[in-house]
Structures are given as structure tokens and as C-alpha cells.
């Protein structure tokens, strides 16, 4: 067994989710965030997920080899 480093799909998934959240956070007005204490939680957490995904992809960079 082997060939797929788990950090690759984790990194890719959180990169996509982080980008979606951050872009949506940039597109929405401040009043969207009244309930989340005025914090643009989409933008902030999207950025956190992007950083996390970059770290994961770096750690699993040898896992892009998908051949059995």
C-alpha cells in the first residue's frame, strides 16, 4: 500500500474551502457579520485555512506521485 500521502487531499480540500470562504468574505458587506461580533469570520477563517493547506501540501509534497 502507499502512493497517496493523506496530506495532499487534506491540503487541497482546505485550499478550496479557504479560497471560497475568503473570496466570499471579501464580497460581503460588514453588516453580514453583526452576529459574529462584527468580525469578518469568513475572510479571517478562510485565510487561516489557506495557510493550513499550504503547510499540509508542503509536508505532503512527495505524495503527488499517484502511480501504484
Amino acid at each position: 500500500m502507499g502512493g497517496l500521502d493523506i496530506r495532499v487531499p487534506i491540503g487541497l480540500m482546505f485550499l478550496v474551502k479557504g479560497l471560497l470562504l475568503a473570496i466570499y468574505g471579501l464580497m460581503t458587506p460588514p453588516e453580514t457579520y453583526v452576529r459574529s461580533l462584527g468580525v469578518n469570520i469568513n475572510l479571517i477563517w478562510g485565510a487561516v485555512l489557506i495557510v493550513f493547506s499550504v503547510v499540509m501540501l508542503f509536508l505532503g509534497r512527495k505524495g503527488f506521485k499517484l502511480a501504484p
Binding site: 502507499g2 502512493g3 497517496l4 487531499p9 487541497l12 480540500m13 478550496v16 471560497l20
Partner: peptide, 24 residues
């Protein structure tokens, strides 16, 4: 955007299964 974020998860979950099939 909520549906899209949920969809991304399900795509990756099934994608992992497809990639790992060749090793099983």
C-alpha cells in the same frame, strides 16, 4: 456558498476512494 462548501467535502471524500482503489 454553503451548498458549494458542503459539495467540496463530498467530492474529496469520494475522490479519495477512487484514488485508493488502485492500491487495494
Amino acid at each position: 456558498i454553503d451548498w458549494l462548501i458542503m459539495l467540496v467535502y463530498f467530492v474529496f471524500v469520494l475522490g479519495i476512494g477512487f484514488v485508493l482503489k488502485r492500491f487495494t
